[in-house]
Write a protein that binds this DNA or RNA. Structure first.
Lengths: 374, 374
DNA sequence: ACTCAGAAAGGAAACGTTTTCACGCCAAAC
DNA sequence: GTTTGGCGTGAAAACGTTTCCTTTCTGAGT
């Protein structure tokens, strides 16, 4: 009876003329047809160099016949690895992550890992939740890209023995979590330089639109701005820093606020490009022009930065490199190698386009027709 | 000796004062500590209503003590389900997918599934590859959002018995794959209506910038454009349709081509918003204005459409709804329910902003200062 | 021809769950 | 007091691999 069944299955595979069988084939079936043991079939799949050519051929033919595909569930279970890396980000669809994800994905494909996406846009989970997921073997490790910091409380990671593979990409961390490895630009330094560029152009009243309150990344950019302003002619002014909430709406509100100041800033530095886009929109809407009346400077160099009107001066990060290095570092951690705690800092650079210019002196104000670049 | 070991583990859990144990706890350890069988522990986890309150309490206490977390690998293996849904898209970071992914993720979270991302940007796999992945239990089902069609050849899906859970989101399909279920707007009809809107404004020479050659989705939009132009005063003109290659660069090239025509179009319909943004940029760069000289119409209503200069008139799709319905339909297929083959069509609508206007008669040409809307 | 080493293959355990089945117990019905 | 039924629990099988250990085979060296 049982043999009958096997025969049936086998014939099904042969007759259909296709690889797709309605009955799931297992390694056992392949072994039976090839006339070898299941261990040998397993070897053919995992270390073919340890098996005689003749047997290998027989097994391969059997696999062909049955349309056998190894059950990943069983394999992963046995190996104790999921082959999955969880990537936590705020939302798919934010242009900035395009390059980072490309880097991550490239390495992942290379090393045989798949990417599990977790969006924090709706719910805002704690770091602990992620640690639990790798504890319970839902993934082998975690990459955190989420801009809004998911670490609102002291986490178990600090009390724990720190063996859960986790790496931050782009993101900064609070001091008590500074031991979590990360790969990123020096946001503070980059923002400092960008602000100094505006100062060098001759701007004195420079506004800053911050990211979301919880984001450490943008907080560091804000610090960089303060650093630069400390040495500026007019010094630091609390009014010039407005919360843009990491959103288009927030940035527009912030811009309106800045424009309504008694002495309106002649330049606005936004913590990211998306807010810079919103900022430009709002400036234009109020009847002013960029950069003639107000210069705007962004951060990230997203794909739309160059086709804005005017094209956006911004700080560019090597996103793909960040993605690659983040993933490699995580994989090292997963393999059990010591990856240390120090952040890996990658190079940023300022790319000057048309949204920044020297401040307009009152006398030279007027209609100067700009030309958009190629 | 063996007992010794168990004791050691147990004490470790108790002494550390934390839930995180260096030695992995299994259901066996919990059972031993609670003084029950492993089946009972399993029941406590999966169907607590079938276990006496007292035992439940004992087990929960044991779980607490050990910091036990069920091994997802083993569980999924035993259940024969991965709890994973593979989402195939061209690239994370394309704003359009934001809403769709939110919808998918919402339902996924609700139903206890996780999302596996596969980007086709780099490699362009065949549908067969995806089918194989669910065959080999790497995921329970597949959602295909990839704009560039991943189906270059007749696929095994057509020859197969069609039991692999797969649903297309937004995407159209070629006729030979028309039996793959999908959730989307009626792209052809939507494009038809959008084009007719331009015609009604008085435009006669209307250009169209297509998506990538392989994309069926944008091909349908092109068809809709043709449908409308058939009835237009000047009729259809081959020159007016240019390949924008689904990219910023491609759209800019296409726009230059259209603008250099002997009789330049007074309106350009782009197969998606991103290309429309590039189109607007290029029009401005050539010294013309939108919409005074050339109207521009997009498709998708991505998050930046409203803060363009000018804000973009475009076709909006209910992206979150599409995501939700796509996911629900896939889950139904995974559960083995018959979901049919007919596409689920959702509502689109045209949202009119400032990038479209009646064509400028030669006489009224001049500097009319527009105001950006709130 | 005989031994022996190394290669190739087979047997069986193990991974951590879930689930089926059977058993024991207690309460209610006779 | 015996039967019946149902509830709570335990024992053990099963899921499909990989891997360790053992056995068998092969060919070269004596």
């Amino acid at each position: 009876m049982r043999l009958q069944m096997k025969t049936f299955r086998f014939c099904e595979g042969l007759n259909s003329g296709s690889h797709w069988c309605s009955v799931k084939m297992s390694i056992k079936d392949v072994a039976k047809i090839a006339g070898v043991s299941i261990s040998t079939v397993s070897r053919c799949l995992n270390s073919p160099e340890n098996v005689k050519d003749k047997t290998l051929a027989a097994v391969q033919s059997a696999i062909e016949q049955t349309g056998y595909a190894p059950n990943a569930l069983a394999r992963n279970f046995r190996r104790g690895k999921t082959g999955l890396v969880m990537v936590v980000l705020q939302s798919v669809g934010l242009p900035f992550w395009e390059g980072v994800m490309r880097g991550i994905n490239g390495v992942a494909r290379e090393e045989g890992y798949s990417i599990l996406i977790r969006e924090t846009a709706s719910s805002l989970p704690e770091l602990d939740d992620y640690l639990k997921m790798v504890m319970s073997k839902e993934a082998d490790g975690i990459i955190i890209l989420a801009s809004p910091s998911p670490f609102s409380s002291a986490s178990a990671y600090s009390t724990q023995d720190r063996r859960t593979p986790i790496v931050l990409g782009c993101e900064n961390v609070t001091d008590e979590l500074a031991h979590i490895p990360s790969v990123r630009v020096d946001n503070r330094q980059a923002a400092n330089e960008a602000t100094r560029y505006l100062l060098q152009l001759g701007h004195e009243r420079i506004g800053f639109i911050t990211g979301s309150r919880g984001s450490l990344l943008t907080r560091d950019r804000e610090r960089g701005y303060w650093d630069a302003m400390k040495t500026s002619p007019l010094g630091q002014h609390r009014d010039w820093v407005v919360n843009g909430d990491q959103s288009i709406e927030g940035a527009r509100r912030a811009t309106r606020k800045l424009l309504s100041l008694a002495e309106r800033p002649s330049a606005i530095f936004c913590a990211n490009d998306e807010m810079a886009m919103a900022c430009i929109y709002e400036i234009k809407r109020s009847g002013l022009s960029v950069p003639e009346d107000v210069s705007v400077l962004g951060f990230d160099d997203i794909r739309y930065a160059a086709i804005m009107d005017p094209p956006l001066t911004t700080v560019v990060q090597p996103t793909e490199e960040i993605g690659e290095r983040t993933m490699r570092r995580l994989l090292n951690a997963i393999e059990g190698r010591d990856i240390g705690e120090a952040p890996e800092i990658v190079e940023h650079r300022l790319i000057v386009r048309e949204s920044t210019a020297p401040p307009q002196s009152e006398t030279t104000a007027g209609e100067k027709r700009r030309e958009l670049p190629v």
